[in-house]
Each structure stands twice: as C-alpha cells, then as structure tokens.
Amino acid sequence: MKITILCAGKIKEKYFEAGIAEYTKRLSRYTAIEIKQVQDEKTPDNASEAEEEKIKQAEGARMLDFLKKAKGSDCYVFALVIKGKEIDSVELSEKISELTVSGKSHLVFIIGGSLGLSDEVIAESDYKLSFSKLTFPHQLMRLILLEQIYRAFRIKMGEPYHK
C-alpha cells in the first residue's frame, strides 16, 4: 500500500516539520508514504469572494494535475473538508482495511490551502472526510492527518494506542 498526502504550500515552521518527519518515519514501517506539495497562492488581505475562488481554482488545478497521473483503479481519494463525514479513529482504521481488501493500494488524502479545496477537487474525490467542524491551519492539519493515519495502522495491526 502507498499513501500520498497531497497539499497546497510548504511547511515553514520547524516544529511542524519535526512532527511531520516523526510521523512519516513511524508510518514507514506500515506503508509507503509520500507528501506531495503543490504551490499555494498568496491570498491578499481583504480578498473578495471572486479573488478567493480564483486562488482555490489555481491551487485546485495543480492538485487535479497530480490526481490525473495518480488516479487508477487501485487509487482511492479522500478530500478533507469541513462538511465531510466525521468518523473516529477506529472507523478510519476500518475504512483503510476495507479499501485494502477491495484492491485499493494507493490512498490519496488531499488537504487544501488556507481557503480550502476547489469544488473540482472535491468532486474528484471518492470520500469527503471531516476531522471536525473546527477550522485548522492547513500546516497543522498535515500533522494531525499523519498522526491519525499512524493510529489507524496501529489499530489495524492490533497494536496498542492511546484512546
């Protein structure tokens, strides 16, 4: 199995980089993992709705380019969106297990930039996943997502994890 985290922008904060590196290392004993970053767009202060939509479209186009290359019958795409389905860690583990058994060997998790994902990217996803109704910075969401995927594999393997 291979997992790709597809996201907009680079991590600038060292503390996020350290956490992401740690969970990437931990996950490597269970699965191949890659983080694919596409260029994000600068959002001007007081951007209009039209400007924000244009920014999401530009970031989304880059993400869709990646998805076109990656998407095959063995690929399954999760879009992280606030209005997605909220599940717990055990359910995420079960979902990953079900996908593996059904022949999905490449899971892609998409995290939008500071404005979220374009409608086109969301439409290309197989599953809309929400971690909360709260809004998280996209840099922090990368770390949270990696931790939850790691936890899902620990659960899947019957290894202890903290509840």
Rank of each mutant, 00 (worst) to 15 (best):
D126Y: 04
A61H: 09
G113Q: 03
E34H: 04
L117K: 04
R154P: 00
I11Y: 01
L6F: 07
S93D: 01
D40K: 12
S89M: 06
E53I: 02
V90F: 14
E17S: 12
D65H: 12
R142S: 12
K133E: 15
K69W: 03
A8Y: 02
E22H: 12
L129N: 09
F66L: 12
P44G: 05
H162V: 08
R62K: 14
A50M: 05
I155E: 09
A70M: 01
R151Q: 01
T135H: 10
R154S: 07
I82P: 03
Y127G: 03
I3N: 09
F66E: 15
E147L: 09
L107N: 05
I82W: 01
L80A: 14
K133S: 15
T43V: 15
I35K: 14
D74A: 10
F131D: 02
E52C: 15
L115K: 15
K25H: 14
K14E: 15
K36E: 14
V121T: 12
K54F: 11
A8H: 02
K54N: 13
H162P: 05
I96Q: 00
K12E: 15
S102D: 12
L129M: 13
S97L: 06
F16G: 04
L6K: 04
K163E: 03
E159T: 02
I149Y: 03
I11V: 15
F109P: 09
V90G: 01
L80D: 07
A123D: 13
I82H: 03
A32W: 01
Y76D: 08
I5W: 04
K83C: 02
S118Y: 07
S93N: 01
A50W: 05
S118R: 05
E52F: 00
E124F: 03
H162K: 11
F153Q: 06
T24H: 08
L99S: 03
S93H: 00
K163G: 05
E147K: 05
